[in-house]
Structure formats: structure tokens, C-alpha cells
Design a protein around this nucleic acid. Structure first.
Lengths: 252, 252
DNA sequence: CGCATGTTTCGGCCGCCGCCGAAGCGTCCC
DNA sequence: GGGACGCTTCGGCGGCGGCCGAAACATGCG
């Protein structure tokens, strides 16, 4: 049993009623360039201003102004290092917000150009979603652990006792004593089906990267697509029972 | 134990990679008028085009165009009835998205005008957040049920066995066999502390309104502020242990 | 020190978009 | 039928905001 982190005794006096400026927040993301920055940063890493500018196809000066706006609003956090300006998403909450908006957003026109199509397909097959797995791979993993009885979806997703031991057997460290939900359902924007987020989703993903079951694709600015390695394929098919078709297309 | 609603056997072939158009969605909410429509509709009811126009202080023609855009994008659902055009939020997911964005949004300048200040203060004291309670009242209820041991926040919020019986004693019908999380934490934008959403939050709120513990304030276009009645005060203080100060200021 | 590189500031241009009022259409009610 | 009312369409106006290039500034490196 655990109490709320905030004491009941702390102030309950009504805040002076300033309502949230929804339009101001939305304006920040309402621009193709700024939105593409945020989407790119969903890989959880820090990018330099120049990388983001090239990624979005705008002049460095333009990117600089956009970044100032996003950092000023608290959506991004920045670290200046030498002549570089590194930015990343400010918090996991910010990442979750962008994820949630992406799932609700309409689909853009299909990408043009061979490179763009390749990248887009790679993203659809398997990617990280800030700190957990998404794409066909993420959905397949979610379904596999459900089949295994590790996660129960009755009344919202929850980790079963079997799931705890199963994950432990894979070397996945499940954090305890956190206010973060262990399992959170996250709607996948390629598959329109849920994948596993929350503390467990994050732990599983970080374990998979650390153990070399997955590797990130693409060089600088490559983004968040991942590929399943041979060892990963053995583990995911064997222990989790992820279907071979998915692993095959998400491999190599 | 319950399976995912979508069969593992259904297609896992990668969707042709069309990425979500985050900017398009955000653009819809990036306008003060459209944002105020959505915020107003967070009360969960259907408003007419004219009501929304007056609420936002724009001409009917302007409102009409905005509504067409919001409905076209699938954010709002509309029902035409005689010479009226009723609109409401399209789904609970949409409401949750707007909630989540409101919590992340910067605070607007304090309202001007006596009426606006009053309304704003009423919202801060107690309001509905689509289908559950929010504001100082919502936060106090969340803390009270936590004190009672009805909700446990370890590893994410969950309903305890004691909570089930306690809520049943209040006549709150907890839905079973749903994929919706029973308890979801929702950050309150006035209090910056969590209140209770999810199936349980919704059931509690609807029970409170149905039993007359709470009543909605304000006439047409009044919005989502609620007031605690005398009976409500007895129940909330007695059974739930909500502090008197909160009930007092949220009453009358 | 001098050059390359990454970033920022500033002016100016252009397009988009939100606004209104006028006019028109459909519905309701007397 | 006639008038009131709610909503929509259209044209036109005005402002905001994103874009770039040029120039300046900062850093790192030889």
C-alpha cells in the first residue's frame, strides 16, 4: 500500500483560475517543421540543431528559431556543448503526449522518394516509441506476452505473476516502487492496435537493446527504426513466441 | 485472464508507411476559437453551433467554418436536428487527448471581468473532466479514497478489494469486462496533482450526479463546473473523508 | 592566429488563415 | 403564408508567422 506522493495536508486552496492555453501549446506543434523535430526526437536521444535542420530540410537559421520556441515552451530540453546545441524531449510526459497525438492524427500523404519509402517501411516494421517498442514488432510482442499470459487485459492492462517471473527470466529488470504504471497500453499508429508501454515496456525495450536482441538502424539522424538480430530472433521466437513472419520482416 | 480483442491471426503485414500528420492535428487546436470550442465540449454534452459561437465571442459564420473543420477531421461528431447543429467530442479518446494537452499547456493570462473570474474560480473548485471529477474537488476525492485504502498507487493506480466493496456501498456500479483501465491517473491542470479517471472515475462521477451529490452549475453554455449539495457533502465527508474545507468552498 | 564549422540575429518577403458582414437557405412556429 | 431564427456560403480584408539569406558570433583545431 502506498500513499500519494503529495500530502493531503499541503495546500488545497484553489489556484487562481488561470486556464490552460491549449491553443498556445497546439500552435507549437502546428507547424510541419516543428512537428518533424518532435517526431524525430521521439527516439529519446539528443539531436543537434543542425541535424534537425537537415532532417527537416530547412535552413539552420529557421531551425534555430523553432528550437528556441520549443525550448522556451518547455517541450524540449537543451544542453549546450561547445559549439553544439543538443536538444531532447523535456520529459517522458512530453513524449507520451506526442505519441498520443500521433495516434490521433490523420495520416499524411505517402512518402515520396525511394529513401523515404524505405525509412517509412522500416519504421512500420519496428521502432522505438521514446522508451518502448512499437510498430509491427511492438504489436507482435504485445500479443505474444498476452498469449503467454504475462499480461492480462481485463479492466486495463496489468502484469501477471507469471509475467513477472517470465520477464525476470529474460533478464528484464522491473522497477519497483514507482508511480509509473507498470503496463500502459499505447495505440500504435501504424498498426492501429495496442502495444506495451509503461515501466514494463520500457524495461523490456532497454533490455532488448542492451542484450543485442535489437539494434538501431541508420546512422546520424537515422531515427528510431530498429532491426531484430539473430540472437534476438531466437529469444523472441523461443521464449516469447513472437511469430516468425514478423521477426523475419523486422530482421536483416 | 483475457485476450487482446484483436486476433493474433489477423494481418501483421506492415501498413504502407504513411506517417501521422501531427501538424495537421495540432493546427486544428492551434486556434483560440477552435480550442475554446473543444474545451467547452469537455463537459461531455452536445452544444449547438450558436452556443459555441457566443461562448467564444465570434460570429456564427466563423463558428460554422470552424465546426466544419473539426468535424471533418473527426475530432467532433455532429447531429443535425431541425435547424440546429449539435456537436460533441467524437469519442472518449478525443476527450482524453484534449485533457492531456490541457495539462501540458502553459497557463493563459488570468481572466478579465467579474463574470469570467467567477466562472474560472468555480472551475478550479470543482468540475467534470468529460466523464470524471477534476479540480480541487476531484483531487480531494482522489486523496480521500487513497487514505481509505481504496486505491493503491504502487506501480500505477489500481483499485483494491476494499475499494470495490467501498464503492459498491456507495452505489457506484463498476463496469466489468472492459478494456478500459479501471483507474487512470489524470493530471489536474488547476492543482497540478492527479485525480481519478478511468472506468472507476467515470462511474463515481456519474453516480454523484445521478444521486444529486453534485449538480452542474450555470445555465446554457455554463460549462462543466459542479457544486456539492448538502447531501453530497454528507456522503463525501462521511463515507469518503473528503476534508471539510474543500467541500465548503465547492458547495453553495 | 586563421580558418572551418555550428549557431544566432535580423530584415524582408510571401502565403495562409481567421475574421466579419451580406446574402441565401432551411426549419420552426404562429 | 409569413416572419423569426439558426446556420451556411462567399468575398474581401488584415495580420501573423514561417521561410530564407546575409552577416555576425562562438567554438574548436591546426
Amino acid at each position: 500500500m502506498r500513499r500519494l506522493a503529495w500530502s493531503v495536508l499541503t495546500t488545497t486552496q484553489p489556484t487562481t483560475g488561470t486556464e490552460p492555453d491549449l491553443a498556445a501549446l497546439a500552435s507549437l506543434l502546428a507547424d510541419r517543421t516543428r512537428a518533424s523535430f518532435c517526431t524525430a526526437l521521439l527516439d529519446g536521444r539528443a539531436w543537434t540543431a543542425g541535424e534537425l535542420a537537415r532532417h527537416a530540410g530547412v535552413a539552420p537559421s529557421t531551425a534555430s528559431e523553432h528550437l528556441t520556441a520549443l525550448v522556451g515552451a518547455g517541450l524540449l530540453a537543451e544542453v549546450r556543448q561547445g559549439r553544439h546545441r543538443y536538444v531532447r524531449l523535456a520529459s517522458r510526459e512530453t513524449a507520451e503526449l506526442i505519441e498520443a497525438m500521433s495516434a490521433a492524427a490523420p495520416k499524411a500523404a505517402p512518402p515520396r522518394g525511394l529513401k523515404a519509402v524505405h525509412r517509412s517501411n522500416a519504421l512500420a516494421r519496428g521502432r522505438t516509441c521514446y522508451d518502448h517498442l512499437a510498430g509491427a514488432l511492438g504489436v507482435a510482442v504485445a500479443e505474444a506476452v498476452t498469449e503467454r499470459g504475462w499480461i492480462d487485459w481485463e479492466d486495463g492492462p496489468s502484469l501477471t505473476a507469471g509475467g513477472r517471473t517470465g520477464l525476470a527470466g529474460l533478464g528484464v529488470q522491473i522497477p519497483a516502487r514507482t508511480r509509473r504504471p507498470l503496463v500502459r497500453s499505447c495505440l500504435d499508429w501504424t498498426e492501429r492496435r495496442p502495444h506495451v508501454a509503461g515501466a514494463v515496456g520500457a524495461a523490456l525495450c532497454s533490455r532488448a537493446l542492451e542484450a543485442g536482441w535489437l539494434v538501431r538502424l541508420g546512422g546520424t539522424g537515422g531515427g528510431r527504426a530498429v532491426r531484430v538480430t539473430a540472437e534476438g530472433r531466437a529469444v523472441l521466437a523461443g521464449t516469447l513466441g513472437v511469430p516468425d513472419e514478423v521477426l523475419e520482416s523486422a530482421g536483416a
